[in-house]
């Protein structure tokens, strides 16, 4: 195991973490600020991936596909907000679970009816299809570098939005104490609609960007939902900073578990035990991390609310 290999795995962990952050950012905003548990975030992610895949194949333009995915998904989300989510803001978390679970069931059947059950083709833009030579001995997928860049940009953008703008101030006010904010005359309803649309846009962006390296198919939203939830819970619900740190943490722990745990166990345990134990432990590393964090800090690393 040489230094380059370790460095590459670190980069992989970072990359995976930033992918998770792309999805978790929107979720934590909606969750934290609107206090709304939106399980259908995964469905919006799926919608983004499907639209991007179709538009990319039809038009050949990847940038156009990403843009279309965000626009279409935000439009769908606006409708969803108007019809359903708006009426859930003041309701119990469990009622929100019930309603958004219902939306998942409907969304999966709708996607199946429109695009069929077979996974969709979603290709990498030709310019980024191969690897780039980072330095001697380390070719790295160009597309992953794009993902890392996109993740960092989204993080920066959200940081600036939340901390340096008037919208951000309202958002923070709504998140830390909704009743107080309403009392002070903040139009919480409008802020919420904006935040939900923003969250949907981020979900769509994540879906569109993940499409070229993952399978675009029904159920992809549910598969990504759980890691995303783990990230926002570790980070502290509602905290963008928390989601960022937690996403990197989960990315690194998960990758390190897969890359280093099996060989390490092989070195100390009999081969048959190690062969069974290594992958099993690597598979649950993320959940162990979450349980450990919550045991020490029951409201996550960066609690947004007092």
């Amino acid at each position: 195991m040489d230094a380059i290999f370790v460095f590459e795995q670190l980069l992989n962990g970072l990359g995976y973490g930033l992918m998770l952050f792309l999805i978790a950012a929107g979720l934590t905003l909606v969750f934290g600020i609107m206090d709304t548990m939106n399980l259908a975030h995964g469905s919006l992610y799926m919608a983004g991936a499907y639209v991007a895949a179709r538009v990319h194949e039809a038009s050949g333009s990847f940038a156009g596909a990403v843009l279309a995915a965000v626009l279409v998904t935000v439009a769908v989300a606006a409708l969803l907000e108007l019809l359903v989510v708006r009426h859930l803001y003041r309701r119990d978390h469990l009622v929100q679970v019930l309603a958004t679970f219902g939306i998942i069931l409907i969304a999966d059947d709708a996607v199946k009816a429109i695009w069929g059950v077979a996974p969709l083709m979603a290709s990498t833009p030709a310019a980024l299809a191969g690897p780039v030579q980072l330095f001697e001995g380390l070719p790295y997928p160009a597309y992953r570098l794009l993902l890392i860049g996109a993740g960092l940009l989204v993080a920066l953008g959200l940081y600036l939005l939340v901390n340096n703008t008037r919208v951000g101030m309202l958002v923070r006010a709504g998140a830390s104490n909704r009743q107080m904010a309403e009392f002070m005359g903040v139009r919480v309803g409008a802020v919420f609609s904006f935040v939900f649309a923003l969250g949907a846009g981020l979900a769509a962006l994540a879906g569109a960007l993940m499409a070229p390296i993952s399978s675009v198919q029904v159920g992809m939203g549910e598969a990504i939902l759980i890691p995303a939830l783990v990230v926002i819970v570790i980070g502290g619900i509602g905290s963008v900073r928390g989601a960022f740190v937690a996403a990197l943490l989960v990315g690194l722990v998960d990758t390190a578990g897969r890359a280093f745990l099996p060989p390490a166990l092989r070195a100390v345990l009999p081969p048959s035990v190690a062969a069974d134990l290594g992958p099993a432990l690597a598979g649950i590393a993320m959940y162990v991390l979450m349980a450990a964090v919550l045991t020490l800090k029951p409201a996550g690393l960066f609690p947004a609310r007092a």
Partner: peptide, 18 residues
């Protein structure tokens, strides 16, 4: 049970996934 609300939802989920 040291956690509340959504954190409790998620930590029970984590253990079930394990």
């Amino acid at each position: 049970l040291r956690t509340r609300g959504v954190y409790f939802i998620m930590i029970t989920l984590a253990f079930a996934q394990m």
